[in-house]
Structures are given as structure tokens and as C-alpha cells.
Design a protein around this nucleic acid. Structure first.
Lengths: 167, 167
DNA sequence: GAAATTTAGTTACAAATGAAACCAATCGAG
DNA sequence: CTCGATTGGTTTCATTTGTAACTAAATTTC
């Protein structure tokens, strides 16, 4: 039984009743599907060309665009959990793409920053990332793009409220 | 150096140059962040109340809304890979939430369908899922919602083309 | 100023995931 | 027929991830 304003096959309306339910219009599923497709594509590139993972790339991206900061700041900035950050940092340190300088005032903290090779990777990856992003969103108009980011932002805000996280 | 039409702090415009680059406006990151927040929230509910994972829920959702089908059809329908489907099906079989009937014409194939307990879970979860979805998208107008689904659909189509998958 | 608490970050272990190899049934060309 | 290729699905193994426990430094409390 379909309601009047949710005609069958119209994937642009969210379902409101059990009878209407379909994964196709179920927002969490659509998001998960798209995100996994996109991430996978990107991951392959980063892994093949630079031998780094997505979370390592995130650290590089943050340190590259925002400048040096402590692991904990990265955690907040990128909504990663501390284990993720710690692991990514450990790998990047070992690979020599970042360095750490222990804060003399508080020896628990250490400021992380890109090494020369880290800078280099950042400068190389950004254009590739932007190019892929451009291609991905090539079917959208400028207006649609900004619209999308705005919508995602709204949803993210609510999703954060709904989840009890340590982020 | 910011370009004229990408003012700093305006998260609604995608970056176009290395100087502009920020994770905040990087679509793949925004998607990954939102998707992981949403999935995590949902996963907790499904796990706590029904002891099933996200992929198991997907099988139930598909079998519940589209009716019985073979594992391979589920794979296509839900853009899951065959290992995922196989594992989810194995667990659901063991838990007694689905059953399988081997196709006598082609003994490699088997049709999967919900058992009574599977039906029950489906009927219980759908309202919860829809409620959460409604809450998640409560900050969006009807128009924005349908807009969003449409945009996600466009992106998904392109993302699929960009990725060489077995899906 | 010693004991309890909090904060920053790491480590350890279990569960989830991904890639590739694998098995078994069917199809299809010669 | 029959031997190679394809299809449907499972298993194996290595890597990733998530949760919780843990260390070490700093801060607070009494």
C-alpha cells in the first residue's frame, strides 16, 4: 500500500511507513553506500601512489592546511578518535612524513608537524584529490554543490547530537 | 590566498586550489564523517536490541521489502560484495532469522527468505529506523530532503563509474 | 604536599573487513 | 561426451578497526 505522495519508484521521497520502506530511500543506507564507494576509490589512489591510508591522509591534510598542532587538536579538528590519530601518527612518524616536538611545559603533549616529505605529499595529493572531487561532482551545478555541502553540514550537526561520542 | 568567490570560512563552496584546500569542504571527507556518525548510531541500536550487524540488517531489509531472492540478487540489489552477503547470510541462518531453499534446477543457487523471527525483526526495526531517519533529517524541509536524495543519487552513479568494482 | 582525578596518548585484544584462493555446479565449444 | 571457462558461493589469511585497559604526566583536593 503506497500513500498518495510517495508514489512507488519515486526515490526522491523518504518513506514514512513500513509498507513504503525501501533501502533505496533510506538515508543512512544511501550515505553509507556513496561514502564507501568514494572512500574506496580514493583509498586506492593514496595507497598505490603514496602508501598511506585514509586516516594518515587526514593527518597530513590537517597539518598541511592548518599548520602544526597536537594529536588531541587533530582529534577534535577531524572528528577522529584518539586511537585512530595515534595509529596514523605512529605510521607517519615511522615513514618520516611528520615529526613531533614534545611540549616542554607539558610533557604529555607533543606538537606534530609535516616534514619535508610530508609537505611534498600534501602538495602532490591535494590537486589529485580536488580533481577527483571535481569529477565526482561534475554532474552537479555550482548551486547544487554548495547546496549539498550545506545539507550535509546540517545533518552532521544533528548526527553528532544523536550520537554519544568521545569525539 | 583565497579566490574571490571562495571566501574563507564559507563552507558551502568546494575548494579549487591548493591554498583553498580544507577538509571541511572536501566532499569525500564530509561524506565519510556523516556516514560514520550515522552508521555508528544505528549500529548501536541494532546490536543492542536485536543482536544483528548492519549488513545483516541490510539482508533483512531487502528480503523484507522485496521478498525472497538469491544471495547473488541481494548482492546486486544492495551493492554489497559477495563475501559480505555470504557472511551476513550465514549468521542470519544460524540465528534462525532467514532460511534457504536450494534451487532444484541449479543446485548452486539458493533462495533466501525471512523466517518468522526474521519477519518480526523486520517489522520491529523499520519503525525505529524510520523514526531515527526522521529525527536525523528533522532540520531539513521536505524539499531539501528530496533534493538531498536526488543529489546523493547523482553522485552515487558517478562514483560507481569511477570505481572498478565487482558490485 | 600526598592521594585521588583528569588528561594525553599508547597498547593489547577481539571482532569486522577485504583480497585472494578455493570448491562445487553448470555452461559451452569442439 | 569432455575439458576448459564461468558462475554462485565459501573459506582463509592478513589487515583494519573498535573497545577497553593501561601508562605517564599534570592537576585538583583535602
Amino acid at each position: 500500500m503506497q500513500s498518495q505522495d510517495n508514489p512507488p519508484g519515486d526515490a526522491t521521497h523518504l518513506a514514512t511507513s513500513v509498507e513504503d520502506f525501501s533501502l533505496d530511500t533510506f538515508l543512512p543506507y544511501r550515505l553509507a553506500l556513496l561514502s564507501s564507494l568514494v572512500s574506496r576509490g580514493i583509498q586506492n589512489i593514496y595507497a598505490a601512489e603514496f602508501d598511506i591510508s585514509i586516516s594518515e591522509w587526514r593527518l597530513i591534510a590537517i597539518l598541511g592546511s592548518d599548520g602544526p598542532m597536537a594529536a588531541n587538536d587533530i582529534r577534535q579538528r577531524a572528528a577522529m578518535d584518539k586511537v585512530q590519530v595515534s595509529r596514523a601518527a605512529a605510521k607517519l612518524l615511522e615513514a618520516g612524513h611528520i615529526r613531533k616536538q614534545v611540549d616542554p611545559g607539558d610533557r604529555r603533549r607533543a606538537t606534530l608537524f609535516l616534514s619535508d616529505s610530508g609537505e611534498k605529499i600534501f602538495n602532490q595529493i591535494v590537486p589529485i584529490a580536488l580533481e577527483r572531487e571535481a569529477f565526482l561532482s561534475s554532474s552537479l551545478s555550482e548551486k547544487e554543490k554548495s547546496n549539498l555541502i550545506q545539507l550535509l553540514e546540517k545533518l552532521t550537526k544533528i548526527a553528532k547530537e544523536m550520537t554519544i561520542t568521545t569525539y
